Simulated scan of single mutants.
Amino acid sequence: MDLDDTIALIVIDVQQGFDDADYWGERDNPDAEANIGRLVTAWADASAPIVLVRHDSREPGSPLAAGTPGNALKPVVADAPHDLFVTKNVNSAFYGAPDLHAWLGERGIRRLVVCGIQTNQCVETTARMAGNLGYDVVLPIDATHTFDLEGPGGVRLAAADLARATAVNLHGGGFATVTTTDDVLAA
């Protein structure tokens, strides 16, 4: 993949508050942050566009609430050069401020590489919306992570199962090409 000003890296919610295991529970993919760092470094070295996204939670007691230590970005991205910083309080980066879709459109960017936290929440939602908006979306699944989650009737899914479901939903559903960090960097 030739990195230039026509392909943006969208880094979603890589925040300190996601390290709170008491709040979130078991996570998958301990290599996610390292892979995110590799992508950020490659984009920065190529002077290609980087968008950082931060979730400013409005949920009472959330470790991602604005003004709390958990709202801060993790060191792997905290000092990363970036072209746009989006804040949001919902799952999709396309419903944040400033307007991501408008910013991408003004620059003629039609290809996105999406990574970050949580695989099956904000990452998947942003990738789905990007696909619906006509972007060519690439998702290196190993540059994401998520947590075990309980659904209706007490059904509990492990984080790794949720990540696999996201990969199938996005790739099989035509929203994104799901791949690995190595493949993105080697392409």
Results as ranks from 00 to 15, higher is better:
Asp20Trp: 06
Trp24Cys: 05
Asp31His: 14
Ile10Ser: 11
Gln15Ala: 10
Ala21Pro: 10
Ala46His: 04
His55Val: 10
Ile12Arg: 11
Pro60Asn: 03
Ser57Val: 11
Ala48Thr: 08
Ile12His: 08
Gly37Gln: 02
Ala65Gln: 13
Ala65Phe: 00
Arg54Gln: 15
Ser62Met: 07
Arg58Lys: 14
Ala34Ser: 09
Ala34Pro: 01
Gly61Trp: 02
Leu64Lys: 03
Leu64Gly: 03
Ser47Lys: 07
Ile36Thr: 02
Ser47Met: 01
Ala46Met: 02
Asp28Ala: 02
Ala32Phe: 04
Gln15Trp: 13
Ile36Trp: 03
Pro63Ile: 03
Tyr23Phe: 15
Asn35Asp: 00
Ile50Thr: 15
Gly25Phe: 02
Glu26Thr: 15
Phe18Cys: 12
Asp20Gly: 10
Trp43Asn: 08
Tyr23Gln: 07
Leu52Trp: 10
Ala34Thr: 11
Trp43Thr: 09
Ala42Cys: 02
Phe18Ala: 08
Val14Thr: 15
Glu26Ser: 12
Ile12Thr: 09
Gly17Gln: 14
Val53Glu: 11
Gly37Phe: 00
Asp19Gln: 12
Val53Gly: 11
Pro30Leu: 13
Asp28Pro: 02
Ala46Cys: 04
Trp43Cys: 07
Gly25His: 08
Gly37Met: 01
Val51Pro: 14
Val51Phe: 09
Ile12Val: 15
Pro30Cys: 06
Ala44Thr: 13
Asp31Glu: 15
Ser62Gln: 06
Gly17Met: 12
Ile12Phe: 09
Leu64Met: 06
Ala32Met: 11
Gln16Ile: 14
Arg38Met: 01
Asp28Phe: 02
Ile50Lys: 12
Leu39Lys: 05
Gly25Arg: 08
Asn35Met: 01
Ala32Cys: 12
Arg38Ser: 04
